[in-house]
Amino acid sequence: MTEISTRVAIVTGGSGGIGRAVAERLASDGLAVVVHYSGNQAKAQATVEAITAAGGRASAFGGDVADPEAMAALFQHATDTFGGVDVIAHTAGIMPLAPIAEMDLDTFDRIQRTNVRGTFIISQLAARQVRSGGAVITFSTSVTRLQMPTYGAYAASKGAVEAMTLILARELRGRDITVNTVAPGPTATPLFFEGKSEQVVNHIASLNPMERLGTPADIAEVTAFLAGPGRWVNGQVLYTNGGAA
């Protein structure tokens, strides 16, 4: 067990990409981190090992974010292992892409189940268990403003995430808990590169004034700000995209 004063973070989807960068960044600020994973235990364990090798504290725990019993067990694991929950960074999500006219409804339902229902379950547990002085950080996407073709179902799910998050911030009045959404732009992760040609990637990278893709570290830095010193930022969507929109 750690000292009671230790702040504790749960990072969903912490096994790779943005989630891993967030987990490592929060650990570098001294938080104990529970690295959640859905299907890849080995990658989650690699994140834990990277954190512990750097002198931090971390533990891995698996489960479906849309399963309330599995996520209740995740929160209980954080409490049993590190003493409580102070920060939620809910990076977990899926992003199948297709034009609205072509997407099958089973895929649409799977997106909403993971991204909307999953966020609702995590938010509900956070509202009940995050300690005073804590932070709840969900993840949306800048595509809600960019209106890029093939992203319809995904953007719809993230619009719901933004709505829930901003309402939760108001519902937690008097609790000293901030609730915000980070909305990354195109970010250099395996998920982003999947199925895209070099020409397409270069075009997308050119759309913002910085003329590059974001990196997981860029997103992790904003998340760490909201988890730590950014106490006067509450009920906001932070578009983290290099100025793309």
Rank of each mutant, 00 (worst) to 15 (best):
H203S: 12
H90R: 06
A135E: 03
A73V: 10
P209Y: 06
A163N: 14
T189H: 01
T12H: 02
V87N: 05
T189D: 00
V35I: 07
G134C: 11
A50F: 09
T150V: 14
I88S: 04
F61P: 09
M148V: 15
T6M: 13
G242R: 01
Y239M: 08
L105S: 11
P96N: 00
F139I: 12
E3W: 08
E171S: 06
A9H: 07
M210P: 03
E194K: 14
Y151F: 15
D64V: 09
I51P: 00
P209M: 08
F225I: 10
L207V: 13
P229M: 10
P216G: 04
L125S: 04
Y37H: 12
L97A: 05
F82I: 00
E102S: 13
A53F: 11
T189P: 00
I219N: 04
P190S: 00
H90C: 05
L97Q: 11
R170H: 13
N241A: 13
P190A: 01
V182F: 11
G19N: 10
G185P: 09
F192S: 07
T107L: 01
G242E: 02
A23T: 02
A163T: 15
A205D: 03
K196C: 00
R57C: 10
V65H: 04
A53Y: 08
T81C: 04
A58Q: 05
Q112N: 10
T189A: 03
E162G: 08
Q129A: 14
H90W: 00
A155R: 08
F61W: 10
I51L: 05
G195F: 00
